Amino acid sequence: MQWKGVFPALTTKFTAADTLDIPLFEKNLQAQLDAGVSGIILGGTLGEASVLTVEEKETLVKFAVERVEGRVPVVLNIAEGATREAVKQAALAKQWGAKGLMLLPPMRYKSDHRETVTYFKTVAASTDLPIMLYNNPVDYKIEITLAMFDELTAVDNICAVKESTRDVTNVTRMLNRFGERFRILCGVDTLTFEELAAGAHGLVAGLVCAFPAETVALYRLVKAGRYEEALAIYRWFMPLLELDIHPKLVQYIKLAESQVGLGSEAVRAPRLTIVGQEREEVLSMIQQQLAVRPALPDYKAIAALV
C-alpha cells in the first residue's frame, strides 16, 4: 500500500428509487481507473456514508474490489461514534476485500487528546490493514495535533494522514517533525497545488469524481516539477474546486458529475437535490468552465517520474 497519488473520494450513486445505482457507479469507477488514479476511497463524506447501511457498504466495497482487479487499492472510510462500532467496521472492511482504511476521530463526541489517541490505537490494534487518519477539525471539530501524532508514531499500521486542517503550513510542520514516517495527502481541493508543492505525497480529491483526468494531470505535473503547466490547469479548475469546500459539496459535485456524464444528481435524504436559483448559479459556473476546458498534456507519459 503506497499512500501517494490521487485517491478519489467517490460519490455513492443512487437511483430514482433510492437504491444503489451500480451501473452508474461502475461507469465512474472505470473513468477513474482510465485516468490513472492510485486508489479509491468509499464511504467518505462525498460517499454519503452516514446514510448508507452496512449492507450497502458491503455491496460497494465488494463490487469495487472485483472491478479494480488489484490495479489499485480500495479503501473504506470509517466514521463511527462508538469505538466498538469502528472496530467492527474495520473487521468487515478486511472481510470484504478492502486494502486500507481511512479513519475519522470519534463522531458526535468531541474527544480530548487521551481519548482521541486511545480511539485510534484501539482501532489500529484490531486490524492489520494500513490506516490513513482524516484530520479535519474544520468540519469534524477534533484536530489531530502534532502531539497526538507523536504518540501514534509507535503504531505501525497508522501510515498516512488526509490533511484537511486548511493550514498549508501543516504539511511542512509534519515533514519537519516526522520526516517520511507519515504520508501526507492533501484533503482540500482548493489547496492541491500548494500542498503538493510543499511536499504532500498525494491528494484525497472531490472534484476528481467529475474530472478525473484533470486531477491526475495536475498531480503528476506538480510532482514532475512542471509548475507552469500545472498552474494553467489549476487556475482553470479553481471555480470548480471551490465546490468541494461548501456545506453542500455532495449535491454540487454530483451536479458536476451529471454534466460530464459520470453521475446523476440523486442524493439520499435528508439531503435534497438543489433547485431554483442555487442550482442555476452552480450549473452556470460548471458550464462556463466546461466551455473552456483545457487540453491536457500527455500526463500519463510522466507516470514513471512520480
Results as ranks from 00 to 15, higher is better:
Met132Trp: 05
Arg67Tyr: 11
Val260Tyr: 00
His113Glu: 14
Ser164Ala: 15
Thr172Lys: 12
Lys88Pro: 01
Gly276His: 05
Ser50Tyr: 13
Ile158Gln: 00
Val306His: 05
Met132Val: 11
Arg67Ser: 09
Asn28Trp: 08
Ala64Ile: 01
Asp139Cys: 14
Cys159Gln: 12
Val222Phe: 08
Glu242Asp: 10
Asp18Gly: 05
Gln259Ala: 11
Gly261Phe: 07
Tyr134Ile: 04
Val204Tyr: 02
Val117Cys: 02
Ile233Cys: 00
Phe193Cys: 02
Val250Leu: 11
Leu24Val: 13
Ser50Gly: 09
Gln2Ala: 13
Pro8Ile: 10
Thr19Pro: 02
Gly206Ser: 06
Phe120Pro: 03
Val6Cys: 03
Gln95Cys: 08
Lys4Pro: 07
Ser164Thr: 12
Leu262Pro: 03
Val292Asn: 07
Ala17Thr: 15
Phe7Cys: 00
Ser126Gly: 09
Glu228Cys: 01
Ile142Cys: 06
Gln289Tyr: 05
Leu203Arg: 01
Asn136Phe: 03
Ile144Phe: 11
Ile22Cys: 05
Glu280Lys: 15
Val74Thr: 02
Tyr234Gly: 06
Glu229Thr: 04
Glu214Ile: 12
Gly202Asn: 00
Pro130Ile: 00
Lys13His: 15
Ala86Ile: 04
Val37Cys: 06
Ile142Gly: 02
Arg183Leu: 12
Asn157Trp: 08
Thr83Phe: 05
Phe7His: 01
Phe14Glu: 03
Lys62Val: 08
Tyr299Asp: 00
Leu305Ile: 14
Ser126Tyr: 04
Lys13Trp: 08
Glu195Gln: 14
Asn28Cys: 12
Arg293Ser: 10
Thr145Ser: 13
Trp96Ala: 09
Phe178Thr: 06
Glu194Arg: 06
Val275Gly: 07
Glu180Tyr: 12
Leu92Phe: 15
Trp236Val: 01
Tyr109Ile: 14
Arg279Met: 09
Gly36Arg: 10
Thr15Lys: 04
Asp244Ile: 11
Asn77Ala: 13
Glu214Asn: 13
Thr190Lys: 04
